[in-house]
Design a protein around this nucleic acid. Sequence first.
DNA 1: TTGTAGGCGTTATCAA
DNA 2: TTGATAACGCCTACAA
Lengths: 331, 331
Amino acid sequence: MRIKKQITLVDVAKEAGVSISAVSKALLNGGGKTTKISDATREKIVQAAKKLNYRPNESARMLTGGKSNYIGILFSNPEERYYADLTSKLADLLAEQGYMPLLSYWRTNDNFSHAYDAVVGYRPAGIISCHRDHDYPVPIPTVVYASDPHSVLDTFISPNHHYPRVAADYLFELGHRKIGIAGIFPELTDAILARLAELGVVNKPEWNSPGPSGYRVGQKAAEQLLRLPRKQWPTAMLCRNDLVAIGLMGELHLHGVEVPRDMSVIGANDIEEAKHVIPHLTTISFSADATARKLIAMLFRRMEKPDAPRKDFQHHGELIIRNSCMEPCKR
Amino acid sequence: MRIKKQITLVDVAKEAGVSISAVSKALLNGGGKTTKISDATREKIVQAAKKLNYRPNESARMLTGGKSNYIGILFSNPEERYYADLTSKLADLLAEQGYMPLLSYWRTNDNFSHAYDAVVGYRPAGIISCHRDHDYPVPIPTVVYASDPHSVLDTFISPNHHYPRVAADYLFELGHRKIGIAGIFPELTDAILARLAELGVVNKPEWNSPGPSGYRVGQKAAEQLLRLPRKQWPTAMLCRNDLVAIGLMGELHLHGVEVPRDMSVIGANDIEEAKHVIPHLTTISFSADATARKLIAMLFRRMEKPDAPRKDFQHHGELIIRNSCMEPCKR
DNA sequence: TTGTAGGCGTTATCAA
DNA sequence: TTGATAACGCCTACAA
């Protein structure tokens, strides 16, 4: 645990035969306040630093400077492709800007407090979090990614509430009048059912299956369907996301049901896999890249103007038509 | 950027009406050296800290303690499912142990130095890196994940050199005598070709396609194949990894080629998608979870015994038989 | 049991 | 142009 022998400014100063403040200034090289160092001394110092493999201690730096390189990223579900993409994208873009991303995963509410506390200890310059139901007691610029706006913090509103409507409308346009639902959030299902009813589409409870997300959920949805006689099936399945859709299609295929001929399937997120799976999945795109960039832009704005009024950004998903949906076959 | 008003020990001490060292001791609560604090004072202090939302400044902590919570994780290709899984697994397990993972992605060799320098500035207690061709000049306990052993550092040797042989042997056993290769490392291809020759298996250059990894590479491999008359095809394709295999299968399917009836396909890595794709992919498992745990165990050992002789761990992949391979059809 | 003082590595201020 | 010195927030001997 203990660091063997840290190389510090003192070592470099000794090696170069100058004072520590000279070293600091030379190595800061315009980044800090004062720059007046003769080229000769600077060269001497740079050589010494290189020789000793010196790197300034960031912890000490933050302590004096009062400013932080850290940006906390508090996300859950790293196993889920979309969130994994989003967080690594965030980390990557932040690193490009010279920040050190502090990733902290959480699973449960209780867990979130730990993750939050852990990150706050490092005094990050900002935080990007996907948890809406939290107070965020420490005054650090924070942006939330969630389905609904946070009461006081800037929120990137995910397409969660919107995409099921987009998907339902598309299936309706194709001619589907019997639609099932796979793995939808409990609180969202009502809204979708209302929309389906509005469109005059039939939905039966036995076509719907609960569950959060993941391939497994899709598999189970298929199993549930397969227990029903084929004649009682819906003609299309609206899935919570691509994982569910892919799981569903896989299981159906195993039992000889062909998508989209026998069943149309629509997903959401547009993960990388969606365009390679068989058949290529029609889905609603959430674009991890665009989302990451927008989140960072929102955070930077907040960091610059900590007292600006709160501001939201609403993301509506984008329909990506591929091969997993078609007009229902007569049978 | 500037932190508004940091809450420090002084604030808590003032609030509780005690000295700062009392606060430090009370909050450390046995974790540090001295614990002698009366319950009454401790309670007072804890209340004050809670009221002010105080969290100790980790940067200051590291500075005094001389010990670090950081573990640097230097990996590339976060877009690739397997590496994304591995790094988030590493980060998760490390966080569980009370460490703060410092993720730093790199792409090119030049880039790696930046990523390395960036991480070293934080004085991590250890580093896990996937880059073999580097000096690692700073004396920090380091473990490398690579295809070949590093000259001085502990290395987790990936199954890279071994799995193609496992795959080739399996296809041979199934009866395949004409095998193509999709997206294999240039330096590995020779070894595979040698093995195929050894087995008496035919391989033709026009069946093989280069490229690093990714669905696209698989697609291109398929396109290349499709340009050939069906009679001149191999009966099986050995793919660099699951991404390539999935991309290949997808493109073949689009053109009416059915896997495994018309073509056997084998992947590597056993990413989550492998068991949900159609058909379920036969592959060589690298197990991100087991790999992450082993890497961490190796690192902790090194951290405890910085001077122990270097030690490697060799991982052979594990064959996972699913539905994308079968004996070749006569045609 | 509590408080005082010194030091961790760096930057910034001010004097030389 | 350079060098001493005081912070930064925390921990830990050591003194009270």
